[in-house]
Design a protein around this nucleic acid. Structure first.
Lengths: 337, 337
DNA sequence: CTGAAAGCGCTTACAG
DNA sequence: CTGAAAGCGCTTACAG
């Protein structure tokens, strides 16, 4: 096993100093053309690459972005990471991914691990526990130590930093509005608890749409589920115990589960029950009937967040914090009329 | 913004040398209890954490594992990463994720980027292009430079290194065998091209099962698709132009597409057409009918690969290379009888 | 028991 | 035009 060649190796073999090698390879005007050419040729021949770790230590800059998300197996977050990866790569940054698994403790631990020099900044989507606890010291600490944070999707108003969110309130409003326009009178909502920023906002949008249409809000047909891919029994109860003609669901999974239960009861989708989900992932396309969804443009969320963190890392970090809102769009498929 | 506190800061403030601080914090027996206590208390008070980058440079070890996969939005790879993340975290390693996007060039570029000191070893699933080109110099280089590689799922026989694969041949065999036992006579196969290791092996298992059952192999009902989530027209043609009573599909997506096309033609699944897919992801559970699949235990692939790379990093790296085979299991759902 | 020195691989201000 | 020195933040063999 040949170890990687270093400046020292080159300097020894060519009988010049390390500084000369370093400057020659960086094409410094201080060095004569002749020496530069020789050294560059040698470096090329032996495939010299500067050591990232040494550069990081010297420059106090790692060119790594730390990403902490609750999980990765569902379309939304993996797609966000996809967007992060792409933009990061284009700018010469690497992406270190950590999963909180919806746990506050793991989120904090991951942050601390990465904060000790491994990364230049964070892109974070808060765990459920963190949102429940409303405990954000770990974020504040990072920011005050000069490690900027961009919060995505699951954000906290309390934290002063850059954010990328979708227009959850308006997205839900538009979806419900569409359902009502198509004739729905009793629209149910299946979403996350209020302590989650997105759950709360979507509920608000849902209620506003009903009110604007002169329809009554019935808390009995608003279902708030903790488990993002569970809730079978609760959804079944919702559908079996209430007269409803449409559902807005906050995840693809809730929506598909609802459709399945409806079919089991002999209810026709979309004729008797129209369904709209959130997150335009593969599930929506694979479901039958295919699912109408509020697309969150999750890739774009990731790339926007990455642009923001890079701007803060490379540009003026004294600019005021921004909150970018990615517009949702309603993607029409078979589950609505 | 307070910068992170360093050994130097502590040493200045406490009027001791940096070496003493370092030793005290590592609880060295060289240092008196009194000094240790004082220094440790101070460090705790000011929340001292050793700088990872400096440690990496000093120890020639980063505690980062580089993961390069073709993509991340589908269940299989995100689930593999999930497994990697978990085991890595348990052992104090971070995971740097790069996506090749099925491109040879990006795969090579990502490897080079990470190989310059950012990571201690690689976990890689080859891009389609790499498998097509049969060009593995980047892998050989890494290994010969002392950066071990564990190849997962999409592997290359030509490369001498640790590998984690599933029993693709046997998994396909079992699935087809099951279909035949349930009465199928004409089993179609929808899979990847032969240049992909998994495509080739599954085809072999499929054919072996047919032969063992005394059935003829008909190349007309073997469909090899390049685009992992496309192929609508080809699958339609397959179903419309042939008499078939079962399908084994190499991805969830192929399977669901087939079911959808079948339903469009008025063919009942599973009564008239039984369908089995590969990868037991969310799509399989959300499809209707729900999909019987060959579960690849993708999380386990990831955790096994991580254990192997860590063992090689921390243990004897002179052990012979191993290939671990993760057994698949057939998960029965509604798309088969 | 404490500290000065060397070194991990690099860059850059400063001498010569 | 070239090189010695200092330094990024740490560890550790060696002196005292």
């Amino acid at each position: 096993m040949r170890r990687k060649v270093t400046l020292k190796d080159i300097s020894k073999n060519m009988n010049v100093s390390v500084s000369t090698v370093s400057k020659a390879l960086r094409d410094s005007p201080e060095i004569s053309e002749k020496t530069k050419n020789e050294i560059q040729a040698y470096a090329k021949k032996y495939n010299y690459r500067p050591n990232n770790i040494a550069l990081s230590l010297k420059n106090q800059k790692t060119n790594n972005i730390g990403v902490i998300v609750p999980e990765i197996v569902h379309h939304f977050f993996s797609s966000v990471i996809n967007g992060v990866e792409r933009v990061a790569g284009e700018h010469g940054y690497n992406v270190i991914v950590c999963l909180s698994g919806e746990s506050f403790e793991k989120e904090v631990k991951n942050m601390q691990m990465l904060a000790n020099g491994s990364i230049d900044g964070f892109i974070i989507s808060l765990s459920k526990e963190t949102q429940k606890k409303q405990s954000f010291d770990h974020l504040e600490d990072s920011i005050s130590h000069g490690l900027p944070v961009v919060l995505v999707d699951r954000v906290a108003d309390e934290v002063d930093c850059d954010k990328v969110i979708i227009d959850d309130e308006q997205g839900a409003y538009n979806a419900v509005n569409y359902l009502i326009k198509k004739g729905a009178k009793r629209v149910a909502l299946i979403t996350m608890p209020d302590y989650m920023s997105v759950g709360k906002l979507r509920t608000l949008g849902y209620k506003r749409a009903l009110k604007d249409a002169g329809l009554k809000v019935d808390e009995a047909i608003i279902l708030k589920l903790e488990d993002l891919d569970g809730g079978y029994d609760e959804i079944k109860h919702l559908i079996y115990s209430n007269e409803i003609d449409a559902i807005l669901a906050s995840t693809e999974f809730f929506a598909v589960t609802a459709m399945k239960i409806a079919r089991g009861k002999g209810i026709k989708v979309p004729e008797e029950l129209a369904v709209i989900g959130f997150t335009d992932g593969i599930i929506s396309q694979c479901a039958s009937p295919t699912l109408t969804t509020v697309s969150q443009h999750s890739q774009e969320i990731g790339s926007m967040a990455t642009q923001m963190i890079i701007k803060r890392l490379e540009g003026k970090d004294d600019e005021p914090y921004r909150t970018e809102v990615i517009k949702t769009t309603l993607v029409h498929r078979e589950s609505t009329l």
